[in-house]
Simulated scan of single mutants.
Amino acid sequence: MSFEACAGIVERGDPDRFLAVMAAPVAARRILFPIYAFNVEIARAPWVTSEPMIAEMRLQWWRDALEEIALGGTVRRHEVTQTLADVLDVDGARALDRLVAARRWDVYTDAFEDAAHFDEYLDATAGELMWQGARALGAVSREDVMRFARAAGLARYLKAVSALEEKGRLPLLDGRENAIAALAREALKDIARPVPSNPAFLEAWQAEPLLRQIAKEPWRVAQGTVGISPFRAKWRLLRWS
């Protein structure tokens, strides 16, 4: 039942990744659904309360769970942790702690310190998530996966900028249209480079058209209108899978 619970969490909390996993082979779904369900739980932890201390406690709970998985002993009971423990090895559990730690930025309203801090956030969240899924499914080149994942993560992040601003966050170091377009153009160089086939890459199925749209029409980021039609999105997923 834990696997089905993970699939349900992803379907409700991250429908784009849910569609990507459903386009993957059945064996890959057993790996990806627990990892993505974990990500849903972590991503929403800073937003379910207005009290920073409570949000920090929620994130720490997951860091402690990952430590239990890494140690290989008894893991606290939760519909995600039990199945996640079957998927992650020691290195995977330790690496995903980096993802949880990075999400502490979402708890507060501080801006990123500099470009390096922003890149680290994308690497720790989007990058580490894709890498651990890909590694569990046989990928061996971390550098290539992280580069690809960072670009895909930027597309998702820029799509969410308007919503983040509505919640009182300062999501961009430079919100001018020319700066946003430059970010998208740079990411396109990485998303267009070929990477070895792996079901974990399916989550990036919309990244390239989104980045092209942002590079051409950066004003969409502030307006919250970044996106492609459902028909085009599903056509791309069919083409990728």
Rank of each mutant, 00 (worst) to 15 (best):
I214W: 08
A24S: 13
A116R: 07
A222T: 02
A111I: 07
W105C: 07
P52T: 00
V21T: 08
P171K: 04
I54E: 00
L129P: 04
M57Q: 00
W240L: 08
R29L: 08
A136T: 13
A101C: 05
M57A: 06
V100C: 08
A152V: 10
E51V: 06
R12H: 12
A181R: 03
A207F: 07
A95R: 14
R76Q: 14
T109C: 07
L137H: 07
A65N: 10
R94P: 00
Q132M: 08
P199G: 06
L164S: 02
R58K: 03
N198T: 09
P34V: 10
R150E: 12
Y157T: 12
V140H: 10
E51Y: 01
G13I: 07
A207Y: 05
V226E: 04
Q206C: 12
A200Y: 08
G13Y: 04
W47L: 06
A181G: 12
D89S: 05
V226H: 02
L202V: 09
G72L: 09
V226R: 04
E51I: 04
A126W: 02
R44G: 00
M22R: 14
E208K: 15
L88K: 11
L71V: 02
L211R: 07
V26L: 12
P196W: 05
A139P: 13
A184M: 12
Y108N: 01
R58Q: 00
A5Q: 15
R30T: 10
W105Q: 14
K159R: 15
M146L: 14
T49Q: 01
R63P: 02
A184T: 13
T83G: 00
V221A: 04
F38W: 12
L170N: 11
T225S: 13
P52K: 00
L172H: 07
K216Y: 00
I54C: 00
A204V: 06
P209L: 03
F148D: 05
R98E: 07
R12K: 15
V90A: 12
E217F: 11
V221Y: 05
D144L: 14
R142N: 05
I35H: 13
L188Q: 01
W62D: 03
A184P: 13
R29Y: 09
G224R: 09
D114R: 01
R185E: 14
L66T: 06
R176P: 02
D86T: 11
E68Q: 15
E208V: 04
A187V: 14
V226C: 09
L129D: 09
A27F: 03
L154I: 14
F112M: 07
F18S: 11
S50R: 10
A149T: 03
E4N: 06
D119A: 09
T83V: 08
G127K: 03
V21H: 11
E186I: 08
A23Q: 00
S197C: 05
G153V: 04
D89T: 02
I9T: 14
F38G: 02
E165C: 12
L210F: 03
M1G: 13
E143Q: 10
A124K: 05
A55L: 01
V100F: 12
A116W: 01
W105L: 13
P171V: 05
E166T: 11
A28R: 11
E11L: 15
E177H: 10
V161Y: 09
D144S: 14
L19M: 07
R185K: 08
A179N: 05
A27E: 15
M1L: 10
P171G: 04
V21F: 10
A124P: 01
I31V: 15
M53G: 00
